[in-house]
């Protein structure tokens, strides 16, 4: 699925940087019914993780009340050049990944 990641391409060592991750997902709550009265089964992202050169730096659990196309923003300290890896896991075996690189000077 499409994802939009915003990580600064360059940062100074020790600088606090903001990371923003937006992904496309319907986030169906499991509480809605169709016009015929049948329950629409739940289909949400349940977990998000961000790894910085293999180390987990941020994790979030997601719930049915979170809007479609979840957007998460968080901060970290730029320590070394490398790669941020993002992973979204959800219902029905849903899994999606994305990555972004950073150069630390």
């Amino acid at each position: 699925m499409a994802a939009l990641i915003n990580v600064p391409t360059k940062a100074k060592r020790g600088e606090i940087i903001e990371i923003r991750a937006l992904t496309s997902h319907i986030m169906e709550t499991g509480f809605r019914r169709t016009a015929a009265g049948e329950l629409v089964p739940r289909d949400i992202i349940t977990s998000f993780t961000c790894r910085y050169n293999g180390n987990e730096i941020f994790r979030a659990d997601l719930f049915p009340a979170i809007a479609a196309n979840p957007y998460l923003s968080f901060f970290t300290v730029a320590k070394e050049s490398g790669k941020f890896e993002f992973e979204w896991i959800g219902d029905n075996g849903y899994s999606s990944t994305a990555s972004a690189s950073i150069t630390v000077e």
Binding site: A3, L22, A68
Partner: peptide
């Protein structure tokens, strides 16, 4: 990067 329309 925060505009969900850009996903489309």
């Amino acid at each position: 990067t925060s505009n969900p329309g850009m996903l489309f």
